[in-house]
């Protein structure tokens, strides 16, 4: 599980992506939960990078779920437009674990 505490600047997300992919690969993980509760602004660039992470982990055999998006941020995301079907949100850690264990 990864927790994002700051803004989704290019370097922060790239770093996140590297760490997530390395962890998935080295530990043969089947699920990744990315907590976005520390993020205030998600623009289309940031969203794309998050979706890319989900697609990359899937290629490595792991599903990525997102959680913790703040209500104020949801309001902006909805206006921003269509959210990719690869961007799957779970309510919290419990829901995420339930979703992952259903699949195994």
């Amino acid at each position: 599980m990864a927790s994002v505490q700051s803004e989704l600047g290019d370097s922060a997300v790239d770093c996140l992506r590297r760490r997530v992919l390395d962890q998935v690969y080295e530990n043969s993980l089947c699920g990744v939960l990315i907590d976005l509760s520390g993020v205030e602004i998600i623009d289309s660039f940031g969203l794309r990078k998050l979706v890319d992470i989900a697609k990359m982990t899937r290629l490595l055999g792991a599903e990525t779920r997102f959680t913790g998006i703040r209500p104020e941020v949801v309001a902006s995301l909805v206006d921003l437009g269509t959210v990719s079907s690869d961007f799957v949100v779970v309510a919290d850690l419990d829901a995420g674990l339930a979703a992952f264990s259903e699949r195994t």
């Binding site: 623009d43 660039f45 921003l80 437009g81």
Partner: peptide
Amino acid sequence: QDHYSTRRSLGIGLPGTKRL
């Protein structure tokens, strides 16, 4: 239009900005 993109974004930036 939604989904027109040159690079790096999902192509919803400009229309998204308009809606915001």
